[in-house]
Design a protein around this nucleic acid. Structure first.
Length: 269
DNA sequence: ATGGTAGACACTCTA
């Protein structure tokens, strides 16, 4: 028995339904963690996604911005949601899925961390200050949650590229939001506090570069491979040895009218 | 220092 979990920032679930169908045809994940759904729950495409094989859904969205969801082929139980850094902006949901014999129940989190604006200065840029507050709060939360409840998966768009090999040029991006020292340090702290292990790094060891995002604004960004690894899938310690496959679906970025992020797909066996 | 593209929504925001 195995469980395949994907995480993908779709940049609008309604405009990405066709791509979602193609992703499902490609890798048939059991569980899909989505970010930037950009839709309120009453307008969420529940039926269309059930028709793709995902009748079990947890979604939490708002108008125009943010929004997260978990779609599953198998029943979801004990679902929850939480606000962070003093804002009600639909960035974190979770639910428990049965991984089957040998895996048992697994709590899956879909998380969308703030992008942080343009200037990496918390004094001058309130969005960056918010991002740092969010990261610190996450580290505190996961430290308290550590070793509680079932084995867990934390997946999503974290908007931080923590390793030097997570960006196309470490030297040129060190002062760019997503790859500054303070963000990289806080994400590492959050990971250690929760006892998380990076499932992708487990099978694709650094410094092998892995990118999951290519900016819309860089015309040659994809062909020149000027990417960053902003999307992550972490597993709690008990699951680290179960990571049996990792796939980054880079091809989706070259499809017509793509999301700027691509799916990260991890199989636990 | 600036502007580049995309999505939502209603003209400007966020990424």
């Amino acid at each position: 028995m195995s469980l395949t979990i994907a995480t993908w920032n779709v940049n609008s679930i309604r405009i990405r339904l066709d791509h979602l169908a193609r992703v499902v045809a490609r890798c048939a994940p059991d569980v899909l963690c989505l970010q930037e759904t950009k839709v309120t729950d009453d307008l969420f495409p529940t039926e269309a996604l059930a028709g793709l094989g995902y009748p079990h859904q947890v979604r939490w969205g708002m108008k125009a911005y943010n929004g997260v969801a978990i779609l599953s082929r198998r029943p979801l139980t004990d679902d929850g949601r939480q606000d962070w850094a003093g804002r009600a902006d639909c960035r974190h949901v979770w639910a428990t899925v049965d991984g089957g014999p040998g895996l048992g129940p697994i709590r899956v989190h879909s998380l969308y961390l703030p992008a942080g604006g343009d200037r990496p200065d918390p004094e001058a840029n309130p969005k960056f200050a918010h991002k740092l507050r969010f990261l610190r709060a996450q580290a505190r939360w996961w430290k308290a949650q550590r070793d509680q409840g079932p084995p867990a998966v934390l997946a999503g768009d974290f908007n931080v590229a923590p390793l030097e090999s997570d960006v196309w040029s470490h030297a040129r991006l060190r002062r760019v939001v997503t790859h500054t020292d303070v963000e990289r340090d806080l994400l590492t702290r959050m990971m250690r506090a929760g006892g998380w292990e990076d499932a992708v790094c487990r099978l694709i060891p650094p410094p092998q570069p892995v990118f999951t995002w290519w900016s819309y604004r860089t015309p040659d960004g994809l062909t020149a491979d000027k990417g960053r690894r902003l999307d992550h899938l972490w597993v709690s310690r008990g699951l680290a040895e179960r990571v049996s496959d990792v796939t980054i679906l880079k091809e989706t970025r070259a499809w017509p009218t793509p999301s700027d992020h691509v799916p990260v797909v991890v199989t636990l066996a």
